[in-house]
């Protein structure tokens, strides 16, 4: 189990999460839902260890190999899709996940790809990293419904613990994930 206990977190001049207490199943899949600006990204960044809570405690995230799909794709613009994935894994694993994400041409640079292709390349990178924990911030951004379905089927068993942020319940259903609402 992952436990967040009375967590307060935010940025200078802006509180985002206030007194959040939450339990996430581990192993398991959890989809976090909330309107924009209500802390989905902050929660994932807290779990990834990129932010520390101002107060409160997070338990169960120690000693993990975490792969985080950022809200932005954060691909290195001077590397091809293939190289962007290879740098966190090995060539074979990179190729495998690019295929799974339906990236046929790994020689394209980010500026030559569509938004959806960039998203899938970033996803391939997170998956190729091979962590035991996958934190996915809006993984289906820019994908059409058919592609969402195929991509979800391929990633939902990729790690024992998956936490993702989604915009609607249908996306959570594609991942067979338990939904957690962050209430305003």
């Amino acid at each position: 189990m992952i436990r967040l206990d009375h967590v307060f977190a935010g940025y200078p001049g802006k509180k985002v999460l206030e007194n959040l207490t939450l339990t996430l199943p581990d192993p398991g899949r959890t989809a976090v839902m909330a309107p924009s600006g209500y802390g989905k990204t902050t929660l994932l960044r807290l779990l990834a260890g990129l932010m520390q809570p101002e107060s409160g405690r997070i338990e169960g995230m120690e000693n993990r190999k975490i792969a985080l799909l950022f809200q932005e794709d954060r691909l290195l613009p001077w590397l091809t899709a293939e190289k962007n994935v290879e740098i966190v894994s090995d060539p074979e694993t990179a190729k495998k996940w690019l295929r799974e994400m339906e990236i046929d041409d790994g020689s394209l640079y980010p500026h030559e790809m569509s938004g959806g292709m960039q998203r899938r390349t970033a996803l391939a990178r997170a998956l190729a990293y091979g962590g035991d924990t996958l934190l996915l911030d809006e993984p289906f951004k820019g994908l059409d419904d058919a592609l969402k379905e195929r991509v979800a089927a391929r990633i939902k068993n990729a790690a024992p613990l998956i936490v993702l942020s989604v915009h609607d319940a249908a996306e959570a259903a594609l991942m067979d994930a338990q939904i957690v609402h962050l209430d305003p």
């Binding site: 990129l50 792969a67 985080l68 950022f70 954060r74 590397l79 740098i87 966190v88 990178r125 990293y129």
Partner: peptide, 24 residues
């Protein structure tokens, strides 16, 4: 900064960070 954070998240070694992030 976002790319820097990405290299930290994916635990790039110092050499890898230099080659793939800083030099380019």
């Amino acid at each position: 900064r976002d790319l820097k954070e990405m290299t930290e998240m994916y635990r790039f070694t110092a050499g890898k960070r230099l080659r793939y992030l800083y030099l380019p």
